[in-house]
């Protein structure tokens, strides 16, 4: 590991202190959001209560009354978890074939899958609205949001699984085949237990992306399937009167995901760079 070790006394103090300052600066907006969420709406805009104030939980207690938070949170949870599950169900067999039985076309298929991710969502906004509203009648349903979230994350899921599977020695699977395992047995009994860690981090990352998605979840929902992104987007301009309650609902919306994110930093690099950076 190429980690710098400081030799001079100045460097030993200065650089770590600078690193801490930078880290705290980057974290400050999140801290400020959490901090403000404990102020009342009235206190949150008064300069005299900027740092010293009487903390209150009322913003969190009233979150359901103010914003109907739990309904949106439940929608986010349902859509993100089902989309992740489906993406894994479709992605695992595909990545398995690509990693262990590649053909000449496998590389092209992988690159093509990646290219679907590069399609700007806005370009197909109207067709999607048109299809789902007038034609299929699934506009603003959980089903639609699950389907879309699954599709936009499928390329990343397959790529991540592919890079994990590729690291498993082929011989282990072949040994299983010798013992008479069929393809299904191979996936279930040999591959999945071996790739458990990779599978979990793929799922975690996919879930995070689904939860944070802010284009389709906003444009393809109105009320029934509206997620937290839609909720926050709908309260974009509180005119300064509701900083307290807005901070509370924002904290509740991002808190779980930020904590989940801490656990998959490494996977993020692999997942988002498609294994090109190691």
């Amino acid at each position: 590991m190429a980690v710098v070790t400081e030799t001079t006394k100045f460097g030993k103090i200065f650089w770590p202190v600078l690193a801490w300052i930078v880290a705290l600066t980057f974290f400050f907006p999140i801290f400020w959001m959490v901090f403000t969420s404990f102020k009342t709406d009235a206190d949150s805009v008064k300069p005299e209560y900027l740092f010293v104030f009487k903390p209150t939980l009322e913003n969190y207690i009233n979150m359901t009354d103010n914003y109907d938070y739990w309904r949106f949170a439940l929608n986010s949870l349902i859509t993100a978890s089902f989309a992740t599950t489906f993406a894994l169900f479709v992605g695992v067999p595909c990545a398995y074939v690509m990693a262990f039985n590649p053909t000449r076309r496998t590389k092209d298929i992988l690159l093509w899958m990646l290219s679907t991710k590069m399609l700007p969502a806005a370009a197909v906004l109207y067709p999607m609205t048109f299809l789902t509203k007038n034609f299929l009648n699934i506009f603003d349903t959980h089903f639609l949001i699950i389907l879309v979230l699954c599709l936009i994350n499928l390329p990343i899921v397959i790529w991540m699984l592919f890079t994990y599977f590729k690291e498993i020695p082929k011989e282990i699977l072949e040994a299983g085949k010798m013992d008479g395992a069929n393809t299904w047995g191979e996936i279930k009994d040999i591959l999945l237990p071996l790739a458990w860690g990779g599978l979990a981090s793929t799922a975690l990352l996919c879930f995070i992306f689904c939860w944070n998605e802010a284009y389709w979840t906003v444009r393809l929902t109105t009320t029934d399937a509206a997620t937290l992104s839609k909720l926050i987007e709908g309260n974009r301009a509180p005119e300064g009167l509701f900083f307290g309650r807005l901070s509370a609902v924002s904290t509740a919306a991002v808190g779980p995901i930020v904590v989940l994110g801490w656990f998959c930093q490494k996977q993020l690099v692999q997942g988002l760079t498609f294994g090109a950076v190691k």
Binding site: F27, W211, A214, L246, S250, A253, V258, W262, L268
Partner: peptide
């Protein structure tokens, strides 16, 4: 340092 990356875009903008 990594935390900001996981904040959802809508919250980021409103904040």
């Amino acid at each position: 340092l990594i935390s900001p990356f996981f904040v959802m875009p809508a919250v980021n903008a409103v904040l």
